[in-house]
């Protein structure tokens, strides 16, 4: 890849308290690329995403998004168009409506009404069911629909890189399928994705490359084809 990657991480260490959960992580996501971070519970995948968003107080190393060094920026500055996250547990603003949740995602674009409306239309285009439910309190939605709102809220800030933390967790097979199709559609629209997953099948369907993480370190990098053609056993070695 000749051009600069959308997301570039080098020598990242991050954690809470006295111990680093994540040590010396290096990874990159190119423009329009989708990359997965696989690994067992407690491997530090979520911490990597949180460190990119600036949600981990203690982080060292280089994090660059679209050429901007964000490793010293506060979260709310990173969230203004550089990175956006659909976090673990979705974390919607449950006492607000679907549309309010989405509009809050476009907080930094509040003076640009036209762009906000275009983005909103594109989210409803991606998830037509949300348009029908737009005035509903988000706590009334099913798990799958809540995940759609979380992804929609992330899209609304029109970020350089989208971070998705286990979007398939605790969803029915049908809902997982919808979420996967949505991610594929995002890829078609040219989005760059960093996906944290435990489900290998979801990751291989969506992503170009996969990093394997265990114990806070990236231990391997592979292509989905490797896994499909029998690499599963290698992967199982890491994932247990």
């Amino acid at each position: 890849m000749s051009e600069q990657p959308t997301l570039e991480i080098n020598a990242l260490s991050a954690g809470y308290g006295r111990f680093d959960v994540v040590r010396d992580v290096a990874l990159s996501v190119g423009k329009g690329e989708a990359v997965a971070l696989l690994g067992p519970n407690g491997a530090g995948k979520t911490t990597v995403l949180r460190a990119i968003m600036g949600l981990v107080k203690q982080r060292r190393g280089l994090i660059r998004i679209g050429g901007t060094d964000v490793s010293a920026l506060p979260t709310h500055r990173i969230a203004r168009g550089l990175a956006a996250i659909a976090p673990e547990g979705r974390r919607l603003f449950l006492d607000q409506s679907v549309e309010d949740n989405l509009l809050l995602g476009a907080l930094h674009l509040r003076h640009d009404k036209a762009r906000t409306q275009t983005l909103l239309a594109s989210v409803y285009d991606l998830f037509p069911v949300l348009k029908a439910y737009r005035q509903r309190l988000s706590s009334f939605l099913s798990g799958g629909e809540q995940q759609m709102v979380a992804i929609g809220r992330m899209l609304m800030s029109d970020p350089e890189i989208m971070l998705l933390d286990e979007p398939s967790v605790a969803l029915s097979p049908v809902a997982v399928d919808i979420v996967v199709k949505a991610m594929l559609e995002l890829r078609k629209r040219g989005a760059s994705l960093l996906l944290v997953e435990q489900r290998t099948d979801v990751a291989t369907r969506v992503c170009d490359r996969l990093y394997v993480m265990t114990h806070g370190e990236i231990v391997d990098e592979m292509k989905p084809e490797t896994i499909r053609s029998g690499g599963m056993s290698i992967l199982n070695k890491y994932l247990g």
């Binding site: 519970n41 407690g42 491997a43 114990h215 247990g240």
Partner: peptide, 12 residues
């Protein structure tokens, strides 16, 4: 409840 979470291979 998930006793092996976050343990190294050796610890597991």
């Amino acid at each position: 409840d998930e006793p092996a979470t976050g343990l190294s291979a050796k610890e597991v």
